[in-house]
Nucleic acid binder design. Structure first.
Lengths: 244, 244
DNA sequence: AAATATATTTAGATTTGTCTAAAATAAATT
DNA sequence: AATTTATTTTAGACAAATCTAAATATATTT
């Protein structure tokens, strides 16, 4: 079955909200999709009729098996296209979200599978989020945010919570990306800010950020201090994995 | 300005018809888009209001400068994506049209330009049709169809008129593709059929065709006779270029 | 030139997705 | 428990793109 772009966006948004909070509410979804609660209710009825949703009036809702399957296919497409944009077309990780929001609605299944193969079956997208396989299976990793990482424990950045361009620009400036190895040196109790030591590889030292600004491409040299300060707000949105 | 997918499809279809026949008629466009004449009239009014169209009731219509510019951008995207699908994802030339029909509506200008660069600024798509550059400039080549090609004159296939999967399957089977060198050996006056000698390169001899059939990929070995018979109908749709 | 046939446009309806304003329900507070 | 506040749903409207059926304009024939 084929679904409209709008329906796909609803399904995907419900998926992300239910992964984070279980049952989803009308207002939460309206906020996520930047639309009105009444519009959400309208669409919920359609999704329920199409048997993608478990929904009882006033009681919240979530995707059923079929809805989840569709959501995972959209997520798969979104993340594969992001990977393509960064790895093949050399966009910055803070530039790809909007474009992938369009590309994720291209319907051809053969296209997605060939793209996956062309890219070498990547396991995660440029923000570290796992890419579901062609069966919709998603490998979730154990990860904690920087506030919970024990002091002086070496860890590797695995994904980013808030992926707004502003957040990604900050991280890029401080030379933090997916795969960056780091250690928390000190926690300041006053404001929960952290002092973090980065173990920069040669490649990262040379990295520059590209930005398109009205058609022109601008290259910015990044900061490369090995010791950086991270606010509580940022730390909550940087997830890492570490041994044992 | 941004236009709906539907409007873009109208603009593109008008463009192709006016390139072939000058002024476009309501019925011709309805037929091209597989829709009703009344729907076409409705949309023509909108396109006229948006100043993309020269249109007077009952008198036919065509794109103005602005409309042509938009059409050329869509054509550019369509053909670049087709090139990507064939050259990078290894689809067959008869499998890419429908997918490109979706991809051509992705809006990001930066994406198209980077894709163009990634592909090495190709001049023509897998069917030999020229790809407009980022300014919308289109290089038209002098070409004739096989019926008009003088006998025993060596020529090279440059593009295909009717690009239906059926036509492309026939050509693939007979081992004719873009760039194939050939010579008409004999014309039969009775039915205007042609006997054509192919000069197959090593690469073409080995070529196999891939097809996706319910997810599985099937490889077919092609015919490789150096002498093939071509009907008038096919000959009218195979265009070639030749020296002097 | 009148009659007939074809092409095009208009009028009015339908579907999808959205909205505002009002009503209904649930949750929180006194 | 009653009242207030917040959330959710309904009712009714609107824009975009399409359709059918009827009306109008143009083209073709006799």
């Amino acid at each position: 079955m084929k679904y409209s772009t709008s329906k796909e966006n609803y399904v995907k948004a419900i998926f992300h909200l239910q992964e984070a909070h279980g049952l989803v509410t009308t207002n939460a979804l309206a906020n996520e999709l930047q639309t009105r609660a009444a519009s959400v209710t309208d669409m919920l009825k359609k999704l329920k009729n199409q048997k993608l949703l478990i929904y009882e009036k006033y009681k919240g809702f979530k995707l059923n098996q079929e809805g989840r399957k569709i959501a995972l296919q959209i997520v798969r497409k979104h993340r594969l296209w992001e990977y393509f944009l960064v790895e093949k077309l050399h966009f910055g990780w803070d530039e790809v979200h909007e474009i992938a929001e369009e590309l994720e609605h291209i319907s051809s299944v053969a296209l997605v599978d060939r793209l996956d193969e062309f890219l070498g079956f990547p396991k995660s997208d440029p923000h570290g989020d796992p890419i579901p396989d062609s069966q919709g299976k998603l490998i979730a990793r154990v990860q904690v945010d920087l506030l919970q990482l024990p002091i002086k424990k070496s860890a590797r950045v695995s994904s980013i919570g808030d992926q707004s361009p502003e957040m990604l620009e900050l991280l890029t400036h401080k030379n933090i990306g997916i795969g960056t190895k780091l250690e928390v040196q000190k926690k300041f109790m006053f404001d929960n800010s952290l002092e973090v030591k980065l173990e920069l590889s040669g490649k990262e030292m040379k990295t520059v950020q590209s930005e398109t600004d009205g058609g022109k491409t601008i290259k910015k040299q990044m900061n490369n201090r090995p010791l950086v300060t991270i606010s509580e707000h940022v730390a909550k949105n940087v997830f890492v994995t570490y041994e044992e």
